[in-house]
Amino acid sequence: MMKDITLGQYFPGDTVIHRLDPRTKILVMIAYIAITFCVQNFWGYIVLAAFIVISITLSEIPPVFVIKGLKPIMVFIIITGLFNLFLTGGEVVWQAGVFKITKEGIRFAAFMVLRLTFLILGTSLLTLTTSPISLTDGMYRLLKPFSRIGLPAHELSMMMSIALRFIPTLMEETDKIMKAQAARGADFENGSLVQRAKAMIPILVPLFISAFRRADELATAMECRCYNGGNGRTSLHELKLEHRDALAGVCMVLILAAVIFLNIAVK
């Protein structure tokens, strides 16, 4: 059951989108997020929608997968939408007791919902098309220049890749401990919230102890393999920018230009 939880749900493939340099994808994503916040009218969202639809098509990922990314955050989107709908002042179009809906409210709520939806769609497309390893790699390369001013770029990426490495191991272990405790009569499904939380303690304690032991052994093993922090370290993987990366950049600039133009042109 614990094994079902996957991190960043990577959907392997070999399409243009998959093959883009992770640095490009991260930067495009940052630009995309900025653009979603720039958009001031519905035409802008049509541009973004076109971008998303084309990207999903190119990535050959079944659209349901991308849309599934919205599920966990749906409640949040709806609540945000409702708040904006009812709590924005202005020209009243509908009223029932204390509840009133204004023209501005409708507009605000729609924008908010669209903005969040596009944010989630974009980021899940990123994690679906980029393996956690290359995401880490890309992040490291992007942050590396900042290590001069004290940003621990190597440490951050090392921490992230070790975390990724140990998530399945610890999941498996949690599963084993839960089964062992259940065999001794522990009950994780029934009872009040407090009772269930209490039932978790006998799982967490051995899990933590084992995690510390693992960390200790891993540190020794890393030292044995000449680990000495990030200094002078090289990498097996080569990140190379290709034509397609330039193309992705140009697309982003065009989208930004289009959105700004639409903001000015359509009032």
Binding site: P132, I133, S161, R165, P168, R214, E217, L218, A221
Partner: peptide, 8 residues
Amino acid sequence: DNQMVANI
């Protein structure tokens, strides 16, 4: 398990 650093 405790000597592997990468997940590939």
